[in-house]
Simulated scan of single mutants.
Amino acid sequence: MPLVHISLRNGKPPAYRQAICDGIYHAMRETFDVPEDDQFMVVTGHESADFRYGASYLNVARSDDLVFIQITANATRSVEQKKALYQSIVRRLGDSPGIRAEDVFINIVEVARENWSLGHGLAQYA
Score class of each variant (00 low, 15 high):
1 M>W: 04
2 P>F: 06
3 L>W: 03
4 V>G: 02
5 H>Q: 13
6 I>L: 12
6 I>N: 04
9 R>N: 10
9 R>I: 11
10 N>Q: 11
10 N>Y: 00
10 N>V: 02
11 G>E: 11
11 G>S: 12
12 K>I: 01
12 K>W: 01
12 K>P: 01
14 P>L: 11
15 A>C: 07
16 Y>V: 01
16 Y>H: 15
19 A>Q: 09
23 G>Q: 08
25 Y>G: 00
25 Y>P: 04
30 E>V: 01
30 E>Y: 00
31 T>G: 04
32 F>W: 04
33 D>Y: 01
33 D>M: 03
37 D>V: 06
39 Q>W: 03
39 Q>T: 04
40 F>I: 08
40 F>V: 06
40 F>R: 14
41 M>K: 06
41 M>I: 09
41 M>Q: 15
43 V>L: 11
45 G>R: 02
46 H>D: 02
47 E>R: 14
48 S>T: 14
49 A>T: 10
50 D>R: 06
51 F>G: 10
53 Y>D: 12
55 A>P: 06
55 A>F: 03
59 N>H: 14
61 A>F: 02
62 R>F: 06
62 R>A: 09
63 S>P: 01
65 D>L: 03
67 V>P: 02
69 I>V: 14
69 I>R: 02
71 I>V: 15
74 N>V: 04
74 N>S: 09
77 R>S: 06
77 R>L: 03
77 R>E: 01
78 S>N: 06
80 E>V: 12
80 E>D: 15
81 Q>S: 05
82 K>I: 05
84 A>D: 10
87 Q>M: 06
87 Q>A: 14
88 S>I: 05
89 I>M: 10
89 I>W: 02
90 V>P: 09
92 R>W: 04
92 R>K: 14
93 L>T: 05
94 G>T: 04
96 S>I: 00
96 S>D: 11
98 G>M: 08
99 I>G: 12
101 A>T: 05
101 A>F: 00
104 V>G: 08
106 I>P: 13
107 N>P: 00
110 E>S: 12
110 E>A: 11
113 R>P: 03
113 R>H: 12
115 N>A: 08
116 W>R: 08
116 W>V: 07
117 S>E: 10
118 L>M: 15
118 L>Y: 09
119 G>A: 10
121 G>I: 05
122 L>E: 15
122 L>V: 14
122 L>F: 12
123 A>Q: 15
